[in-house]
């Protein structure tokens, strides 16, 4: 089945008119969002669990300025360079005019309010594990942040990746709502699985991708080449990461490795976020990583 879909993906890339039905944007059920009351404090935790600012804050922003989600961070890939958009509450240039349902369609299905596919550089493949309540809470927190009127920059992609319709097929192949770790033995691992596979989107960098840019779930967390072209992103599965659970949790809190080197590169930004989480959540992430096969 996957091979057939991959062949279809090729066909659609070559002939965008084909596969119209398979490529239509799919949306969440609005019923699931009716009557939910937002919890801003919970939304703040999700904001740090998801690391929104790591991509959506302006690239040079430091300290308080990281709360201004003006966009502009450039993500290099084999398909071209993606530019993170403005998701501040500005009604025109940001997402201030969006409803929680709009945010849900973006984060859980990769579909814009206008019904266009988002590129999977926006990791909805991970966010799909988040709940309706999560999205409502997160939207309420995002609405409390400062607005920015920075206009969005266009992605810099090569043909045929400029054809967004093809993303519909990509989603049919790679947008899966089941967890990679099927059996979570304890509540702590369940929480860790949700944080890592869901909002934390750790696998998006720590798991290798296939030729179409989909995550190779059979090589989960076994490391990957750095998409910037130099160096690699380390494997963090139990076979490769010898750190203890408490060492992993301490790293996510302070950025210090067991031999007191410190996090660098993009991981330094991740630690800025994980250091804001409750200690139990860092412990849960560590427990999940150790529970992987």
């Amino acid at each position: 089945m996957r091979l057939i879909l991959k062949l279809l993906l090729v066909a659609v890339l070559l002939a965008p008119a084909a596969g119209y039905w398979l490529t239509r944007p799919d949306r969440v059920d609005p019923e699931a969002f009716a009557g939910l009351t937002p919890d801003v404090a919970r939304g703040e935790t999700l904001y740090y669990a998801g690391g929104c600012a790591s991509c959506h804050a302006a690239p040079e922003a430091e300290g308080e300025a990281k709360l201004v989600l003006a966009g502009g961070h450039r993500l290099e890939s084999d398909f071209g360079t993606f530019v993170a958009p403005n998701i501040s509450p500005d009604p025109e240039h940001g997402i201030g005019a969006w409803s929680a349902l709009d945010l849900a369609n973006a984060m859980l299905r990769g579909v814009s309010p206008e019904g266009r596919h988002y590129y999977p550089s926006f990791p909805y493949t991970s966010y799909i594990h988040m709940s309706a309540q999560d999205i409502v809470d997160l939207k309420a927190f995002l609405d409390t942040l400062p607005a920015s009127d920075t206009p969005n920059a266009a992605h810099d992609l090569a043909f045929p990746f400029t054809l967004r319709r093809g993303i519909g097929l990509w989603k049919a192949l790679y947008l899966e709502d089941d967890y990679v770790l099927a059996n979570a033995a304890t509540d702590t691992v369940v929480r860790g699985r949700y944080l890592v596979e869901g909002p934390g989107h750790c696998a998006e960098c720590h798991t290798p991708r296939d030729a179409f840019g989909g995550l190779d779930r059979s090589a989960w967390m076994t490391g990957a080449p750095n998409p910037s072209g130099r160096g690699s992103i380390p494997a963090i599965d139990p076979a490769n990461l010898s750190w203890s659970e408490s060492e992993i949790a301490y790293y996510l809190e302070t950025g210090f490795t067991p031999d007191f080197d410190s996090a660098g590169g993009h991981m330094a930004r991740v630690v800025e976020n994980t250091s804001q989480l409750p200690e139990e959540d860092r412990q849960a992430i560590a427990a999940y990583l150790k529970a992987l096969p």
Partner: peptide, 11 residues
């Protein structure tokens, strides 16, 4: 980390 983020190549 703030310095490593900008100035040290990740491993």
């Amino acid at each position: 980390s703030s310095c490593h983020d900008d100035y040290r190549e990740p491993q």
